[in-house]
Design a protein around this nucleic acid. Sequence first.
DNA 1: ACCGAGATGTAGAATGTTCTACGTAGAACG
DNA 2: CGTTCTACGTAGAACATTCTACATCTCGGT
Lengths: 340, 340
Amino acid sequence: MAGQSEPGRGRVTIRTVAADAGVSVAAVSKVMRNAYGVSESLRQRVEASIEKLGYRPSVAARGMRGQTYTLGVLLVDIENPFLPSIYQGIEEMTEARGYKIMVGVGKAHERREAQLIEQMIDNRMDGLILVASQIPGAVMDRYARQIPTVVVGHHEPQADSFDTINSDDRQGARLAVQAFVERGHRDIAMLAMEWDARHEADVSPQREAGYLAAMAEFGLAGRARILRVPSSEKPHADDLRRILAMPDRPRAIFCWSDLDAVPLRNLAWQMGLRVPEDLAIIGYDNNPVAALPMIGLASIDQDGPRMGRLAAEALLSRIAGRRQAEHVLVPPSLVLRGSV
Amino acid sequence: MAGQSEPGRGRVTIRTVAADAGVSVAAVSKVMRNAYGVSESLRQRVEASIEKLGYRPSVAARGMRGQTYTLGVLLVDIENPFLPSIYQGIEEMTEARGYKIMVGVGKAHERREAQLIEQMIDNRMDGLILVASQIPGAVMDRYARQIPTVVVGHHEPQADSFDTINSDDRQGARLAVQAFVERGHRDIAMLAMEWDARHEADVSPQREAGYLAAMAEFGLAGRARILRVPSSEKPHADDLRRILAMPDRPRAIFCWSDLDAVPLRNLAWQMGLRVPEDLAIIGYDNNPVAALPMIGLASIDQDGPRMGRLAAEALLSRIAGRRQAEHVLVPPSLVLRGSV
DNA sequence: ACCGAGATGTAGAATGTTCTACGTAGAACG
DNA sequence: CGTTCTACGTAGAACATTCTACATCTCGGT
């Protein structure tokens, strides 16, 4: 019922172009795809007609047989200011190669993410990049058999149906612990998300493992403490407050994400704690908010743009035919700020 | 070249379902679309087969004739934390009605936005929502004739080919000026974006007009001052610093967006200015960062979710056949915080 | 003059839906 | 009992591409 002014009679299709250029439909198709077997003169003629008529191929029709030259990017969440940096990297890489991107927002909800993936398959996207998806590995595997897939921010090093690009989350945690230790801290806790076995591949458990390993490495195994807050659904300000009010409040906290580190730092301020004197904090993601001078939150930087570029490269090579899975770990770095 | 395991032979199409249920292809199509003329018994039979086979219609094939039940949402920018709230509203409304959403990110770049719109038309989206687009009205008009369109955050009250949903930006500016006046301020400046005639319909010029009108209303016409920073491309920290260092620095600043108000507030802090004693600030958008206790930035709230819902409703009714354009203004409100 | 190989171009099937037009059976009506 | 509706289904064209043969041309070599 969505009929607009022109009932469709006006639409310029590949047929219109072919007629105008005086060649076959197949010839125009070849030109569009840079396919083999088109002479320079033919190409020029066809391109002139395309230009003249303003022809644009229908992605829908393309999708029925060949490629759509469109990639799907699934973001966990649109509110985390760290994610756009990954997106930038993806885009930079794919745009140059003539691919378009469609974004889906999963809102950290597994059911929803699955729907979006199916929708992208239905839309005949050429490939998929899942960023920090909540979907369990087994399910990912099933989808990945239907469509070339690269996963970012989800550790599944043994997967063979898709590639993974990750920050070296264990190393990131180690950097944080080391920075605390070098500044004389011994009472170093970690603030982590609650998780169950289904989410073992998520980043938070990896950072936990790294934290515990680093504490042991620095001879502080006995002092390791993991404080938990409910998974990333909104309201855990109260949990954070409770943590800061504990009689044995730690002197330094490594926080699994700036998503919690920023509120934590704000609560500390509200409760009159001096940062870093009473409480030192290091977050994760180097979220732009952490960089604001008034917040001044030290954080582990994952180099989002680079992860994005790597993911895009992996996807394109997979689309080009690669079958062997690739698993990349990107080294993180620590950005020091006032909170340590 | 993207071939996955199953060469396609395995794909379950509408034909598979029809065969399984022992009915015609057209019958299955009717069931999928809830179209007229299908008996209860037939519907049940078909639905059982769909369930059993896990059939999912191909959006590509659908797009070739009918609707795709997919809407395109074009966001200026993925880094502005205010935009997700509009997105939530859009989604809430459309999801319930069985529509899917694809997001495009324009990065405040006109050429890019135009490409994305064309891409969405190519993908046969049923309709488009443009959020804070940079595209001039005349160009929008051309696109809007090809596809049902609703525009958010772009004032074009005379447009007849598309609908607009906006915050009442003039009223928002008035609220800010009024709040300052009530607190005894008279030296009230506005921080605005540079703009040219092409962007008169953007929100910043509207807020300027509202500021000037309000200053006049409160008898301060002679004291109105508009300070300009380069358009939203990144680096204007230096411009902000210069403004704060002016000998005749204003005592109160109404800022066109939290995008600039947050850095401004941070710079003031860095330069040792007391807020609000030395400088009071009100921003616009009620960006989540403004709400952080340490930032405490008063801001005009646009009720993003509501604008999103209204935009979605307008689009759906337009898809359903409405031709007459609608132009809605949503009243803003002031959220008071420490910066005033 | 003939042949074979490569390069260039074309016809037409295939893709998975929707939509138009039409057929058929049973009910309601005179 | 014939006629006319109405409700339910179906056949097949249409949609805009790509892709798989296949046909035709051009040359250089015999």
